[in-house]
């Protein structure tokens, strides 16, 4: 089976006054049909730039695709012209953004926005696309869609707006859906509904999903594979169960431990284990490992040379750390 999406050695940098900002650096992964890949990382780790790179939505300049390939069913996205890329966007790849209020157009009715995608990519007329838009809205759980289709985005709640975004994203049955923090702005009960919806639709349509989030709990329940990103690089990549059962990279371990859990009881004198310090400046990265300043297990070699992402057999995964080389 060939992968739906193969990203090979992708680097997206930004030219700034302080020099090149390595937002995405040498990232490689493959995604198969019907799979969900979770990408976890803190703000500024490059996870959003990675998804924008796949959509070819990084503004160039200041952005620059320095190296690598993004192959979607064998088609090299980085070599396509803008006109060709436009046919891919919304049709084979679609994206759901974090804030549905800012990514829906406030001056158009939601029906117009959903049917536009359908009209553009499926070449049907207004009546047909209108009908299909109603069906899509019903599919994502919007009640009385034939009425709601005339609403403006501000008339809907946050959860409903995110459903509209999903309807737009799935309207053309894409092979790949990029969901960038799709539930971060939502309440937990609504979050659970939206994630269940994405999973149901994914199963029905066989869409692959890249789920980007900082919430490890969301990943644990919704992804099959997970990549931990730190300062522009993948530092660990594994099956979800393996990763949570045996985190290898000190950063992954630190992240997992620093989350307060609802299963635990914390007495007054209990403190959370923390990762000290802050993420490094992407334009002034240290020599050697990017996590060295915050790492509890730092060794002399970590300060000299950057470790490679190396495959491990037991437990099975890829990890970028000198401890495991």
């Amino acid at each position: 089976m060939s992968p739906v999406l193969a990203v090979d050695n992708l680097s997206t940098w930004f030219d700034t006054e302080q020099g090149a900002l390595k937002a995405v650096d040498e990232v490689s992964f493959q995604l198969y049909a019907g799979d969900t890949l979770g990408i976890v990382g803190e703000s500024g780790c490059g996870k959003t730039v990675l998804s924008l790179s796949i959509m070819r939505l990084v503004p160039t300049p200041p952005g620059r695709y320095v190296s690598g390939q993004i192959k979607m069913n064998g088609l090299d996205l980085l070599s396509l012209s803008e006109t060709e890329m436009r046919k891919v966007r919304g049709k084979s790849i679609s994206m759901i953004f974090q804030e549905p209020m800012t990514s829906l157009n406030p001056v158009f009715r939601i029906g117009a926005q959903v049917s536009e995608t359908i009209r553009l990519h499926q070449g049907c007329n207004r009546t047909e696309s209108h009908q299909k838009a109603i069906e899509m809205l019903r599919l994502v759980g919007i009640e009385v869609p034939e009425k709601r289709i005339n609403d403006y985005p501000h008339q809907l709640s946050g959860g409903m707006r995110q459903r509209v975004m999903i309807a737009m994203a799935l309207a053309c049955h894409p092979r790949l859906m990029l969901a960038d923090e799709p539930t971060t702005a939502l309440d937990v009960t609504i979050q659970a509904q939206i994630l269940a919806l994405i999973n149901d639709l994914k199963r029905e349509m066989g869409t692959s999903v890249i789920l980007i989030t900082h919430d490890l709990g969301v990943i644990a329940e919704n992804a099959q594979h997970v990549a931990i990103m730190y300062a522009g690089k993948f530092v660990e990549y594994a099956d979800v169960k393996d990763l949570f059962a045996h985190p290898l990279h000190p950063y992954t371990e630190g992240l997992l431990h620093s989350i307060p859990r609802i299963e635990g009881y914390y007495s007054r004198d209990k403190r959370l284990p923390i990762i000290p310090g802050v993420v490094p400046d992407l334009s002034r990265l240290p020599q050697g490992c990017r996590f060295q300043e915050r790492c509890p297990d730092v060794m002399p070699i970590c300060r000299d040379e950057e470790p490679a992402l190396i495959g491990q057999s037991n437990p099975k995964r890829y990890v970028r750390c000198w401890k495991y080389q």
Partner: peptide, 9 residues
Amino acid sequence: AVPRLDKGP
């Protein structure tokens, strides 16, 4: 509704 780390996908 809280997503748990120890539950399966």
